[in-house]
Design a protein around this nucleic acid. Structure first.
Lengths: 351, 351
DNA sequence: TTGAAAGCGCTAACAT
DNA sequence: ATGTTAGCGCTTTCAA
């Protein structure tokens, strides 16, 4: 009986969190004293502090961060919003982790979300973040107009753009030199003796895709290699689409002897096509973006690598710097790319 | 002069967001009317609504979600906390995306963070989430005691555990049958004629690692195959560690003819070792967890696959269900694993 | 050293 | 249909 009744008491849980008022009442002190103790403010006698601490502990008190920051000077929420193409994408995930690590040092929580490269989605997500009054925003900008962010900047919420610049606003930006990276990838193939180098590109609405396309053209022209429109394909946004496109150009009358795949999924799509056709040791391949296991494929895949961890870390550091100093000049930080030679990019032309 | 002064005016930005009071003043109405319009509540004349909307627009007004929810009945923050081993890990990232998609449908933001499998870190992260009063928690439980979450449950914050059960609390849980998955992987190798099957396992503090170890032993015993302690290695938590361990057992006097790698990074580590020794076509390999490009390696890698997207989706749905019905019985949902036959696991014993 | 009162930006409850 | 007052849980200000 006693046991049963105890069980019932145990089940009648308090569906309400203890507040400072509750703690104050239990400790028999004023609410401000509780506030002082909880926040480690000076001017509380040790005995009093101990009493309050004990009361807080028995009530499982934890201060409500929202309420605290509502009135607190500076009114930081200690949270930041991070917008990625998709949290599920390895490149984005590496940035994510780097941002989290910098934020964690400052006790700042990270709200993240995926835009899927859709501008309306980006806008909606920014709105849910700013409604929560994040202290800052790190975005992978989609589309060609980010002026809708101006009110946020005016309100003092700093924004940093990663991977691509935001357009129509003046914000710090951390990118790699995509034109140069694509050029060096293409030149690497040209140096190996190729003339018919195909280009497989992502959606042109993505700024980096356009820049890589430009880098490819620049290298081809610089080497005096003719650009065959039949070997230049844009708008590929999945492994499957890239595989289909690669299959098509490889089976046409005058196929390329080399392929520059301008992005991760496109590279693996191209590899799928090359394998299916048994051409993976015949046609050279260089990809933009490194990927795990690239070294274990046969041939191992030569890539132009970015450093997403550095991108994320630097972007987060910028963001925090700007929170402290709103008026420092805006900077565009361009990180270098690195050619990683592994084999696939060094195959000579076979025809 | 005029230009300069204009520039100055432009630069003197309002470092303060408009409040409902500001909107009310500009529209010449009471604050409650603004509240009604902003929240789409009925009982406002169209003319009034239009006036308020116009004022809100000119002031770039956006309601402060924190302040709203502080008083609002139900007091949801429309946010949830997601704890993963690391946001940077492909398995975790897939869960992350699935959770985000379910949450987005309900207009709920996701706070995510990485535990790195460290219990103290998990605890600290949970604290930062609950201080922000997230509506629910999805955790990849670390360590062997999660009773510290009981006060949160009592306060009405639901918790769902993914990948591994939380210990010491009664919460919904979405896992795969690790014992069975590991058993089927091992049996697959035994059926191919192997007797000396090595086991490479993750840190024993991770529950799934222990379960997979158990599944391996169960299959070996079931088949009457002797378990050689020299071929059973735990505590591998990186590609490098796994590669070193695999290298060691493959170069010892009586090497295994097959390897069961109990996790993603361990599988790739094992492949690195096999490649380095030129044994990738001699020694059979089955991995736990599928990974991208497993089909493009040579030989392609046979794995026991989980469905992280399903895990994330189901976990998030459970969480939202429980928010509406706190008293439904706790469930443990066990998802099946699937053997994906690709080649590496079907190699016959060579010695 | 302590605490009472006002206020953060908003919504609930209750006028009018 | 509109507005006024109190109050969410906390911090700030100021008085004791």
């Amino acid at each position: 009986m006693t046991t049963l009744s105890q069980a019932r008491d145990g089940a009648r849980v308090e569906r309400r969190r203890a507040t400072m008022r509750d703690v104050a009442a239990l400790a028999g002190v004023g609410i401000k004293t509780v506030s002082r103790v909880v926040n480690g403010e000076p001017g509380v006698s040790p005995a009093m502090a101990e009493r309050v601490t004990a009361a807080a502990r028995t009530l499982n008190f934890q201060a409500d961060a929202r309420a605290s920051n509502l009135r607190r000077a500076g009114r930081r929420t200690h949270s930041l919003g991070l917008l990625l193409a998709s949290v599920d994408n390895p490149f984005a995930a590496a940035i994510h982790r780097a941002v989290e690590d910098v934020a964690a040092q400052r006790d700042v929580a990270v709200l993240s979300a995926s835009t899927d490269e859709r501008p309306e989605r980006e806008k909606a997500l920014v709105a849910t973040f700013t409604a929560r009054r994040v202290d800052g925003l790190i975005i992978t900008a989609t589309g060609d107009d980010h002026s809708y962010l101006q009110p946020e900047l005016d309100a003092g919420t700093p924004v940093v753009s990663v991977d691509r610049p935001a357009i129509g606003i003046e914000v710090d930006c951390v990118v790699v030199d995509n034109v140069e990276g694509a050029r060096s990838a293409t030149e690497h193939l040209l140096h190996a003796g190729h003339r018919r180098v195909a280009y497989l590109g992502d959606l042109p609405i993505i700024a980096t895709a356009r820049q890589r396309h430009e880098g490819y053209l620049s290298a081809m022209r610089g080497a005096g290699a003719p650009v065959d429109d039949g070997l230049v394909i844009d708008g590929l946004h999945s492994d499957e689409a890239a595989a289909a496109a690669a299959h098509r150009i490889l089976t046409q009358p005058d196929p390329p002897t080399a392929i520059f795949a301008s992005q991760n999924l496109i590279t693996t799509g191209a590899i799928h096509a090359l394998r299916a056709l048994g051409l993976h040791r015949e046609v050279a391949l260089v990809g933009f973006d490194d990927f795990s296991l690239a070294d274990l494929l046969e041939p191992a895949v030569t890539v132009v690598a970015q450093d997403p961890v550095a991108i994320g870390r630097i972007a987060a550091e910028r963001l925090f710097t700007r929170m402290e100093d709103h008026d420092r000049p805006v900077e565009q930080i361009v990180l270098p790319t690195r050619l990683v030679v592994r084999g696939s990019g060094e195959l000579p032309p076979r025809w």
